[in-house]
């Protein structure tokens, strides 16, 4: 397999941002942004991606690894095509978020942060998504489709079933989201 390379989009992004930071600080300042985009391109952030990012930005691999492991949105392992994130924090909990989350677990046959055997859906329990008045809230991200992250609000089990049916068929029921 040829060695991984940062995509032209990421290269262009780095180019464009570099001058927004003071001399000598740009490489480090771009760590989070490049890591995230690398994850979008490669699916997850493993040692190879960490080395790639470190080399490109002129940083040590230790620094990049330290950053990658600190933030929860960086996945060290492959996630499913769809990443279903259910908020169970206080606002959503008061609206029955745990029922929603347990239902997702049961239907998908996975525990928190696990992926279905067919690699289709990863389920995560997440903290407050800043939509607390409209709970229970879930967010779905689709790999390779940065426009997809959609919020699904005021979820009941019926809507959850429709969403999961959609994901099984390979489509996000965007009409149910906002």
């Amino acid at each position: 397999m040829p060695a991984k390379q940062l995509t032209p989009e990421i290269e262009a992004w780095i180019e464009q941002r570099w001058s927004r930071f003071p001399e000598g600080a740009a490489g480090k300042a771009l760590t989070l942004g490049v890591l995230y985009q690398a994850q979008e391109a490669f699916g997850h952030v493993d040692t190879e991606v960490i080395d790639l990012v470190a080399t490109r930005l002129g940083l040590t691999a230790a620094h990049v690894r330290g950053v990658a492991t600190f933030y929860t949105m960086i996945n060290p392992r492959e996630v499913g095509r769809y990443h279903l994130q259910v908020c169970t924090n206080i606002g959503c909990m008061l609206e029955g978020a745990y029922k929603v989350f347990e239902h997702c677990k049961a239907r998908l046959g996975v525990e928190n942060k696990e992926t279905t055997a067919d690699g289709n859906v990863t389920l995560s329990e997440v903290e407050c998504l800043a939509a607390c008045g409209y709970g229970p809230v879930a967010q779905i991200a689709e790999k390779g489709k940065p426009e997809i992250p959609l919020y699904f609000e005021e979820l009941d089990l019926e809507t959850v079933d429709k969403i999961l049916d959609g994901l099984e068929k390979g489509e996000v029921p965007t009409e149910l989201g906002r």
């Binding site: 941002r17 927004r20 300042a29 989070l32 942004g33 890591l35 995230y36 600190f70 933030y71 929860t72 949105m73 960086i74």
Partner: peptide, 8 residues
């Protein structure tokens, strides 16, 4: 310039 967090 916008900088994005990564979940923390």
């Amino acid at each position: 310039t916008i900088c994005r967090g990564l979940g923390a």
